[in-house]
């Protein structure tokens, strides 16, 4: 069996494609393991889905070709949660709220806050507590 990889994807659904069980097919037909962080897929509205998919490169590629047939936009570089290092004052108010420690101090001496995007599960807790508006959501 060839090696599996995990990719983070943001899918944008146009108004008309929201009722199709696309994720079901990713699992059933393309052998992908999916981990959904955030979803808003409402009939009659545009929607989005932020998820990790794990599978072989070939399976992921085939699955993406399948998704595109529904007129869904796939963004592999977009970030659902962003942290603006210039707006951040490094107070540390977000640190106890970040369950995965994606937001953490680079070191205890300088106590500079850094954001490790790969660890972020988009729980949005930081957005609620940041007094400086440094954290934002794409949706």
């Amino acid at each position: 069996m060839s090696q599996t990889v995990t990719k983070k994807l943001m899918l944008f659904f146009p108004k008309c494609e929201c009722e199709k069980p696309i994720i079901y097919h990713l699992v059933k037909d393309h052998n992908l393991i999916v981990n959904i962080y955030r979803a808003k897929v409402t009939p009659e509205e545009e929607g989005y889905l932020v998820l990790d998919v794990t599978g072989t490169e070939q399976d992921i590629q085939r699955a993406m070709d399948f998704v595109r047939t529904f007129n869904v936009t796939i963004n592999t570089t977009g970030k659902g949660v962003t942290w603006d290092e210039h707006r951040c004052t490094h107070c540390g108010q977000c640190l106890p709220r970040c369950p995965t420690k994606a937001l953490h101090f680079a070191d205890q001496a300088t106590r500079q806050v850094v954001f490790d995007e790969a660890e972020c599960i988009e729980c949005l807790a930081c957005i609620r507590v940041c007094p400086f508006n440094a954290c934002a959501s794409a949706f």
Binding site: T89, H90, C91, G92, Q93, C94, L95, P96, R97, Q108, T110, R111, Q112, V113, V129, P131
Partner: peptide
């Protein structure tokens, strides 16, 4: 407080700051 956790009456409590030591430094 800066360790990120204090104990109050036997319970561990997560600590955050509103003051920036980084900027103060």
């Amino acid at each position: 407080l800066r360790s990120g956790e204090i104990e109050i009456e036997g319970k561990k409590v997560a600590v955050g700051s509103l003051s920036s030591y980084c900027k103060a430094l």
